[in-house]
Design a protein around this nucleic acid. Sequence first.
RNA 1: GCGAAAGUGGCGAAAUUGGCAGACGCACCAGACUUAGGAUCUGGCGGAGCAAUCCGUGGGGGUUCAAGUCCCCCCUUUCGCACCA
Length: 850
Amino acid sequence: MNDNATAGTNQPQRYNPAEIEPKWQARWDADASLYKAEGHDSGKPKFYCIEMLPYPSGQLHMGHVRNYAIGDALARHMWMRGYNVLHPMGWDAFGLPAENAALKNNTPPREWTLANIAAMRKQMQRMGLSYDWATEVTTCLPEYYRWNQWFFVKMFEAGLAYRKKSKVNWCPDCQTVLANEQVVNGRCWRHEDTIVEQRDLTQWFLRITKYSDELLDGLEKLEGWPEKVRTMQRNWIGRSEGALVDFAVEGEVKVPGCAKITVFTTRVDTIFGATSVQLAPEHVVAKAFAAEDAGLAVKIEGLLAEQQRAREAGDVGAIEKHGIDTGRFAVNPFNGELVPIWVGNYILADYGTGAIMSVPAHDERDFEFAQKYGLEVRRVIALKAGGEDPALPYTAEEDAVLISSGEWSGLGCVEAQQKMAAFAQSKEFGTSTVTYRLKDWGVSRQRYWGTPIPMVYCTNGHAGVEPGGVVALPESALPVVLPPQIEITQQGGSPLGRVDSFVNTTCPVCGGPARRETDTMDTFVDSSWYFYRYTDASNSSAPFASEKANYWFPIDQYIGGVEHAILHLIYSRFWTKVMRDLGLVKNDEPAERLFTQGMVIKDGAKMSKSKGNVVSPDDMIARYGADATRMYALFAAPPDRDLEWQEEGVAGISRFLGRVHRLVTKYTEIVRAAGSREGTGSETEQKVLRKLHQTIAKMTQDFSGRWHFNTSIAAIMTLINELVAAEPAMDSGEVSAAAVTEVFRNLVLMLAPFAPFFAAEMWEQIGGESVVFRTAWPVADEELARENEMEIPVQVNGKLVNVVKVPAGSDEATVKAAALADEKVKARIEGKTIVKTIVVPGKLVNLVVK
RNA sequence: GCGAAAGUGGCGAAAUUGGCAGACGCACCAGACUUAGGAUCUGGCGGAGCAAUCCGUGGGGGUUCAAGUCCCCCCUUUCGCACCA
C-alpha cells in the first residue's frame, strides 16, 4: 500500500495483513494437527462447538463471516482455556440450486457443487478459521448419504417411515413437494412470490408426531436455547387438549360413514350453548350433502375457493366469515337438542376433525359468525362469584361456572371439561383427546440432486408383499448411488424416473423384477444428523461409532441463524430421539446451548443482490485483511443483534491493529530479552498493570457469559490507549521490563481469538513459545487489578455536583467528610440544611438539603 | 388481533445488581508532522449558553434520596403466530 520513504524512518515494519495473513495461512494449511481434537480418552474436559453448516453456493457472504467469527473466537478461547475442542465444518450439499445451475450452465450438479465447496473452503481458510478439516462432512457424497438411506430403512423397520397418499404442498417453481415447515404464509420458503399448490400424491413420511409430546416437553429443559426459538417450536407443535364429541346426523345419509359428525373442542363444558355444527368445506359429510344437492355443492365449492384465495393472499386470518346452512340437523348428545349443520369458510379441514360445535356465547369466532347469520347466542357460563354477567362472548375458564347445563350446572369450567369428557366416553359418544398442529414430516422430493430413497417396488410381489408392494433394501444393497450423468430438464416429475437403468432393478427378497423409488429425500434429512458424523467422519461400517458420539454429545455450543428455528432445529431434535431409541446415542437432545446471531444488514436492510447492498467478504479481506474483517464483525454490535455493516468501521479496526503492531514492534526487544527482573513499583507501572488485569478479567467474563465481544474489544482498545499514554514511562524504565513483558504477552494472547493471524505473527515476533492458540489463557490477578483510589460522585438532591477522590476502601465517614469538604459541594449547600445523607460505599454520596 | 424483543448523540453502540448517561469506535472539527497524503500523531466532539448553569435515554404519568434501568398508560419499529376450535 503506502510503502513510501517516510514509512521507513521510524516504523520499519508497518502492519501489513496482506503479507502476514497468507504467510500464516500457508503454515496452518500444511499442519493438519493444529486444530485436531484429541480422542475421547483425552484427560481434558471436552467442548464441542459448531456453526451451522452452509449450503455451498460458492460464495461466503457476510452472514457466514459473522457466524464463523463468533464460533471461531469461542473455539480458540476454549482451546486456550485447556479444553479438548472439536470444531468442525461441513457442507449441506444437496439441493435445488445445483439443478438450476445445471440447467443454466450445463454443468453436472455434482461438479458444480464440489467446485463451490472447494472455493468456499478456500475462503474459510483465508479467514483463518480453526476447523479440523479431517472431520469435514459433505452430504452429497455416497459415503455420507448412504447413512441417510440406512437410517431410512431403520425407520421403515421401526414403523417410523411410511408411505401414504395425501394432500401435499407443491411448489411449481421447485417442481417438487414441500414439507409443512417449508411453507410460509402459503408461499414457498425459497420462492417468496410463489403460491404453494395442494396436490394429492403418494409420499414418504417420517413419523415425527410420535415424538410430539417429547419434543414439546424437552423444550422446558433446553435452558441454553433462546426463549424465542423455544416459543416458536412450542407454537409449531401446537399441542391442544380437548374432547371429541359425536353429533349424530338427523335423517338419512347415503354415503357410508357419514351418519355422525365428530367435532373437536377444547371447551366441551360449553356444549349446552352449542347452537350449530360447522363443517369445513372439504369435510366428508359436507361432501355427502353436496352429492345429494347440486345447489349446495356449488355453494360449498364457493366456500372452498374463498379459503384457497385467502391462503394465496397469505392472509388466512383476515378472511371474512361466510357460511351456508345445509338445511340438515345434528343431535347434541348431551341434551338431545337438534342443531343446524352449517358449512363455514373459517373451518380448517386439516386441523382437529374439520368440524366444530359452534358456541357463540363463549367463542369469539362463533360469536361473530352467529351475529352475521342471526344464530342463537345462548349463555351457559357465568361468573363463579355471581353478580352481573360479563359481556358476550365470554371466553374465560377461570373463576367461571356452568349454568343452564342440566346436571352439570354449577361445576367449574375445568372440572366440567374432565367430567363431561369422561361421561361422553362412558356413553360411547366421545372421548378426551389431544391434537397437535405438528404433522408428520413429508420427505419425498421429486428432484434429482438428493439422497435416493432406498426402497423398491416388487413388480410381481412375493410372500407378504402384494404386486407392486414396498420392499426396503438391505444394508448390503446400500448405498443406492445417484446416477452421475443425467439430463436435467424442466419437465415435471422425478428426474430419476426417466433413467431406466436406475429404475429397473431386482427385488432383494424374491429376485424378481422391481422398480426403484424415484423420489429423493428432503435435504433437511441430511442436516438432521450431520453433526454426529463429524465425530467419526470416515467410518465406513456405521454412521458413527457410538462411543465417539457419546463422548462429544450433546453439542456444547451450537451457533447459527434464527431462520432455522423450526425446520432444521426441530428435525434434528427428532432425529436425535430416533437415534437414541435405536440405541446409537445416549443424549435426548442434540445441543445443550444454542446461540442465534443477528443478521448482517447494510443501509438498514438485509443484504441482497436485488437491493444492491451486498458487501463481499473477499473485498473486505483484500482491503483490510481477514483479521480486521472478522474483528469488526464482532465489534460492531453484540452478536445476538443485527449488525449494520460500515466499511469505515473495518478501517477503524485495521488502524487499531496497526497501533498494536507499532507498540508490540517497538517493545519487542525488551520482551524478548526479559528475564525475571523486578518491577519498579512506580505509579505508572501500577496503573498499566492494573489496566491489564482489569482487561483480562473483563474478557474472561465476556467469554463465559454474554459474549458481548463488542465490549471485550472496546476494553482492549482502552488498554492500548493507556499503553500509548504510558510510552514515555516505558521508554524511560519507569515501567520495568518485567511489566512491559507481562503486558505485551498477555495482550497478544487476548487478541488471539479475534485476530488469529495477527496474534500468531506478534507472538512469534516477541519470542512466544509454542503456538499462541495452545498457550494458556491469561488469568487476572485481582490484587493487581484493584484500584487504590476511588472516584465518588457527590450529588445534592440527586443532581451531580462534583466527583471526589478517596482512598479505596474508605469507610462511610471518610467518604462523607470528603464530600462535605469539596468546594463545589460547599457552595451548593451553603445556607441550607442537610436533611438526609445517603452514602453508598464505593458508589456515591447524595446529600438531601432543604 | 395475540405474543416477544427493541427504541439512548450525526452513525454503530456502552452503562451486567436502581447509583457519574454516552465507554469504545466511526464520521466530523482543529492542530502537529509533511516529498500537502484517503498515512500517522495530539486535542475536541449530546443540545442550549460567553459563562455560571439548565435541558437531555420514543411520549405521558408514578415509585424512590436517586430511574435508560422498576410500575401504569400510550406511540413507533422489527420478529414470530394468526379463524388451530
